[in-house]
Simulated assay, not measured.
Amino acid sequence: MPGRDVTLGTIQRELTAFARRARHKAAQIHPDLSLVTYSMLDHMQASGGCRGIDLAEHFLLDKSTVSRQTAVLERLGLIVRAADPADRRGQILRPSAAGLRLLEEAHRQRRETFEERLADWGDEDLERFAGYLRRYNAEG
């Protein structure tokens, strides 16, 4: 049985490979979107809209980075801005119709990829894998 250091090294390499594939897939979906920008768009949709500061807090990013990324999304017509009813000075960011279509296509492609990569896995393996991912992400 490998030692803890060897196992942690394997986990690090495999998660790095996973991140590389995710960045590559994001570029295939839309060449002008980075994985971070796509993730922000996805978060806006999942949260029903949010402020830039919410994105900065969620992704642990500087406000200026979020501002640049949301400017890209706006320039591409993928988000819309609306006045924040709780704070007239703020704005709520939401995916536009084009942004929602892009997210739908991205989700479809991701699902196909997962189905292909995990086709040989049994239900118990999938459930364990999903549980480990939830546990890993919850402890962050």
Rank of each mutant, 00 (worst) to 15 (best):
P2E: 15
G3K: 03
R4L: 11
R4A: 12
G9N: 13
T16P: 00
R20Q: 10
R20Y: 06
R21Q: 11
R23I: 00
R23N: 04
R23M: 01
R23H: 01
H24R: 13
K25R: 13
Q28R: 13
D32W: 00
D32H: 05
V36Y: 07
T37A: 14
T37G: 06
S39D: 14
M40T: 01
M40W: 03
D42G: 05
Q45W: 09
A46N: 14
A46T: 09
S47F: 08
C50Y: 05
C50L: 15
L55E: 06
E57D: 15
L60D: 15
L60T: 14
L60C: 13
L61E: 10
K63V: 14
S64Q: 14
R68Y: 15
A71V: 07
A71E: 15
V72I: 14
L73E: 13
L73V: 06
R75A: 15
R81G: 03
R81F: 04
A86V: 07
R88V: 05
R89D: 10
Q91K: 13
L93I: 12
L93T: 01
P95K: 04
S96A: 08
A97W: 05
A97C: 03
A98P: 00
A98C: 02
H107T: 02
R108E: 07
E112Y: 03
F114S: 12
L118R: 05
A119I: 03
L126T: 03
G131F: 01
G131I: 02
R134L: 11
E139C: 09
